[in-house]
Structure formats: C-alpha cells, structure tokens
C-alpha cells in the first residue's frame, strides 16, 4: 500500500467517525463496556484461581496415620499412597517434624510441657492431578489411616462458584459482543450511506473494491482502538480501587497487583477491540467486497 493511500484512508476514516458522531459514540461506548466487563470477569476468575492455588485446596490431601504403627507399616502405607492413580507426589512429615512445626508456630517449647511425650501421628501430604473424590476414597481404604483431610467440600464449593462466574461471564460476554457488533455494523452502514455518491463516482472511475472499503475497515479499527484504550484506563482505575479496598479490609485474600498484569490486559483489550471493529466493518461491507 502506498503511503499517500494510507494517509487518505486514515483521513477518510476520521471524517466518517466525525460525520456520524452519535453512532460512533454509541459504538465506542458499547464496545468499551463490553471490554470492561470482559476484563473484570477475567481478572476475577484469575484472582480466584491464584487464591485457590495459594490455599492449596485443590490438589492436596492430608493423611494422618494411627499412633502405634511400626516404621515398616508406615513405609508400606507410603508405597500404597504412591500407587493410587492420579497421585503425583507424597510427602511424609514425621511426628517429630510435626511437633517441631507446632513449636515453631506457637513459639514455645512443647516438649517440656508434654514431658517428652509426642501426641502427634505420622502425616502424609498427598498431591494429585485429577479425580480428588476417587483419590480420597482410595486413601480411606488403606489400613492404618486414621484421618483424611481432603477439604473437598470447600474446594468443590469454590470450584462451582468459579464455574458459575465463568458461565455468567460467557453469556454476558456473548450478548455484549453481539450488541457491539450490531452497533458497529450500523455505524459503518451509516458511514457508507452518507458517502454513497462518493462511492458511485469512485466505482465509475475505476477504484478497486478494496480502495472503496478500506476507509470503512479503518473506521472500525479506530472504533476498536479508542474503545479499548478508554476501557483499559477505566479498568485500571476500577481494579486499583477494588484492590486497595480488598487488601485493607480482607487481608486473607491475595489480590494480584494491576501493574503485574497490565501489559496482558492492554494487549487483550486492544486485540479484541480491533478484531471486533474489523469483523463489524467487514460484515457491513460484504456486498461491496464482493462487487
């Protein structure tokens, strides 16, 4: 493409946006809202995932053994745990190590109080990749296992909460994207209508279909860029506000800093914005592209 043609396309695109100011404003507002909602949901899901991982709720089971087991029996249980399908790692914590952890966490010498008696049992931490219910069931079948803390209920509750958010998010996103496309298509159609005489003359003097349609595609791209940049800054402001609120009032929740992810958010916003603009323009111009 020659540089003077590119200058012409961009100039025409801005003229078109200005000429149909109300529709252009509507397109930008709707697409921007869509991107903010999309970004908001994505960040929420991402934060839930990070917190779940941090809590270790999803792929970890604590197994406590009977108190009077011999070392051979403990090793045998460890081997049985390792042989369960989907188990990826088994870590043993001896009762001495357990007592040490308690002492460290409470910052006192427990052995003196207990008179060298250790009331803790041997513990295994079992990590798994999939099928938590099955893994938990298999562990419970092993002889010598006293108690199993799988925290599956909590994990499943959080998982279903996350899945619920994703379903709502997908529907919301689909509806907003369709509305955005619809508004962009109408904006471009209006732009084509207001330039119909120009287009007729262009066709008669031998302008190619691409030359006629590219200014409108650029118009869609500009709508996408403006929407995404505005949406990004609003998202940034809103997220930082919520981040401050959560970190001061709900300290146990770990919130990802916006600075750590802003580049990804920006690329995502601009990418989706431009893509939506191009698709909207091409859909409304399909008949010109064909002829």
């Amino acid at each position: 493409m020659k540089h003077y043609s590119l200058t012409y396309f961009i100039g025409q695109s801005f003229k078109g946006l200005w000429r149909n100011g109300v529709m252009s404003f509507a397109s930008i507002t709707v697409l921007m809202s869509c991107l903010i909602v999309l970004g908001g949901f994505s960040l929420l899901v991402y934060n839930i995932d990070v917190n779940l991982e941090k809590l270790g709720l999803l792929n970890e089971i604590s197994v406590f053994l009977e108190l009077d087991l011999e070392e051979e029996e403990i090793v045998s249980i460890e081997n049985q745990l390792k042989s369960i399908p989907d188990v990826t790692k088994v870590i043993r914590t001896t009762n001495e190590e357990g007592l040490e952890q308690v002492e460290n966490s409470m910052n006192l010498d427990v052995s003196e109080i207990l008179d060298d008696y250790n009331p803790l049992s041997e513990k295994f931490t079992v990590y798994y990749s999939d099928n938590p219910q099955n893994v938990s069931y298999e562990i419970n079948q092993i002889e010598g296992v006293r108690k199993v803390y799988d925290r599956l209920d909590l994990a499943m509750q959080l998982e279903s909460f996350k899945n619920g958010i994703i379903i709502v998010f997908i529907w919301f996103l689909a509806i907003l994207l369709i509305v955005s496309l619809f508004v962009i298509i109408n904006t471009i159609k209006l732009a084509v209508y207001s330039r119909r005489h120009e287009i007729t003359v262009m066709r008669y003097v031998g302008a190619t279909g691409w030359f006629i349609t590219l200014p409108f595609v650029f118009e869609g791209i500009i709508i996408g860029i403006i929407s995404s940049v505005l949406g990004f800054f609003i998202e940034w402001y809103a997220y930082t506000y919520i981040e401050k609120m959560v970190t001061t009032q709900m300290k146990m929740i770990n919130v990802i800093m916006f600075d750590d992810i802003k580049l990804f958010v920006f690329i995502g916003f601009v990418g989706i914005g431009i893509l939506t603009g191009i698709i909207g323009s091409c859909l409304s111009l399909s008949k010109y592209l064909k002829s």
Partner: peptide, 21 residues
C-alpha cells in the same frame, strides 16, 4: 468482477446530473 475496476479506468463517464462533490 475483480477486473471491472481496471476495465473502468479505460472509460470516462459524464452524467446528466454532473455528480460533483
């Protein structure tokens, strides 16, 4: 259809209503 613009460059068209901007 692809060749139509190149063909039209061989023509100059004048209309009754001028069609000026």
């Amino acid at each position: 259809n692809f060749k139509v613009p190149y063909y039209r460059r061989q023509l100059g068209v004048v209309f009754q209503d001028f069609r000026l901007f």
